[in-house]
C-alpha cells in the first residue's frame, strides 16, 4: 500500500470519526469525547497531507543514505555561482549578498542563508570579499555565524571579516536606498538576491543591471519573480530557492529530500488531475458515484 493511499484512507477515517463524533454529540447532547477534545478534527485533511509529505521526504532521504543515486536537472543560476565569484575575484571587486528583507522566522530567509553558507565557502576559497547588509538584526547574527563557519570549513578563518555582515534598517525602502547607494558607490561585480523580497526587488535588480554586475536572484514571492526574471542574469524560481542548498552541496540527505519534494508534487498533481476530471465528468453525466468521488476529493483538500 502506498503512503498516498494510506493518507487518503486516514483522511477519510479521521473525517468519518469527526463526523460521527459530531452527530453523536448533537443527538445525545453529551459532552465531546477525549479524542474530539484533544484533536482538532477540522484540520484532519491537513494533518494527513502533513504526514504524507513528511513520510515521502523522509523515505527518500533514507533511500539516498542507502546509496540511491539522485539526478538533479541543471539549474543555471546555481551553476553560475562559481563563475560569478571568480569574476568578482578577477575584477578585484566585492560580492554583494542580500538575504531578503524578512526575519529568521521566514523559511525563505533561511534558504537564502543556506546559499550564503555555500557562496561563503567559494568566496573563502577564492579569497574574494563578500558584503552582506541585512534588514534584520537576527539575520545579521545568523549570517555572521553561517559565513564564519564557511570560512572555517575551508581553513580561511583569517580572511573572515564580521564587519562586512551588518545591519542597516528594518524599514523596507530605507534598506533599499542604502543597498542601491552601496551598489552605485562600490560597484560589486556580482550581486546575489536570495530570500523574500517585495517592491524593492526591481529597484535593486535594475541598479545592479545599471552597474553591470552579474546578478543571481531567487525568491518564492511569486509576485516579484517577473521583476527578477526581467532584470537579472539568473533567477531561481520559487521552489528552486529551496533546492539550492541540496544542489550546491550534493549531500545524499539533501538530494533525497529534493526527490521527496518531487514525489509530493507528483502526488498533488495527480490528485488535482483526477479530482478535476471527476468533478467535470460528474457535472456532465450527473453520475452519483462521480459526485461522491468529487465530495471525497473536496474533503481531501479541506474544502
Amino acid at each position: 500500500m502506498t503512503p498516498a493511499l494510506c493518507g487518503l484512507m486516514v483522511a477519510g477515517l479521521l473525517d468519518d470519526a469527526a463526523a460521527s463524533a459530531g452527530k453523536v454529540a448533537a443527538i445525545a447532547n453529551t459532552p465531546p469525547g477525549f479524542l474530539e477534545r484533544t484533536f482538532d478534527f477540522d484540520k484532519s485533511a491537513l494533518f494527513c497531507w502533513l504526514v504524507v509529505i513528511s513520510a515521502l521526504v523522509l523515505w527518500n532521504i533514507a533511500r539516498a543514505r542507502r546509496g540511491m543515486k539522485v539526478t538533479v536537472r541543471h539549474i543555471a543560476g546555481l551553476d553560475a555561482v562559481e563563475e560569478a565569484v571568480g569574476r568578482a575575484t578577477e575584477m578585484g571587486r566585492p560580492i554583494l549578498f542580500v538575504p531578503g528583507i524578512q526575519d529568521m522566522d521566514n523559511v525563505q530567509t533561511i534558504a537564502g542563508l543556506t546559499v550564503l553558507a555555500r557562496v561563503g565557502k567559494t568566496t573563502a576559497e577564492y579569497d574574494a570579499q563578500i558584503e552582506v547588509p541585512t534588514a534584520r538584526s537576527l539575520v545579521m547574527t545568523a549570517a555572521r555565524e553561517a559565513l564564519q563557519a564557511s570560512y572555517m570549513s575551508v581553513g580561511r578563518t583569517d580572511s573572515y571579516n564580521p564587519e562586512l555582515v551588518y545591519y542597516v534598517t528594518d524599514e523596507q525602502f530605507g534598506y533599499t536606498a542604502y543597498v542601491s547607494g552601496l551598489m552605485v558607490r562600490k560597484k560589486p561585480a556580482t550581486c546575489f538576491y536570495l530570500g523574500q523580497f517585495f517592491a524593492e526587488s526591481l529597484i535593486l535588480a535594475e541598479t545592479g543591471n545599471a552597474i553591470g554586475a552579474i546578478q543571481i536572484a531567487g525568491t518564492a514571492e511569486s509576485s516579484q519573480l517577473p521583476f527578477f526574471v526581467a532584470a537579472c542574469d539568473y533567477t531561481l524560481i520559487g521552489e528552486e530557492l529551496f533546492a539550492a542548498s541540496a544542489y550546491l552541496s550534493g549531500e545524499p540527505d539533501q538530494m533525497g529530500g529534493l526527490r521527496g519534494q518531487d514525489f509530493c508534487k507528483a502526488l498533488v498533481g495527480g490528485v488535482l488531475v483526477v479530482a478535476v476530471a471527476a468533478a467535470t465528468l460528474a457535472a456532465i453525466t450527473g453520475s452519483a458515484a462521480l459526485d461522491s468521488a468529487t465530495g471525497f476529493f473536496r474533503m481531501l483538500v479541506g474544502a
Binding site: A199, S222, S223, A303
Partner: peptide, 23 residues
C-alpha cells in the same frame, strides 16, 4: 480559511497593491 464552511464563516474583503493582485 479556518472558518470556511462553518457557521462562523468570515466575510473577508481585501484591497491589495498591483503586484500582489495576481498572487
Amino acid at each position: 480559511t479556518p472558518a470556511l464552511g462553518s457557521d462562523d464563516e468570515i466575510l473577508l474583503v481585501s484591497g491589495v497593491t498591483g503586484v500582489q493582485a495576481p498572487q
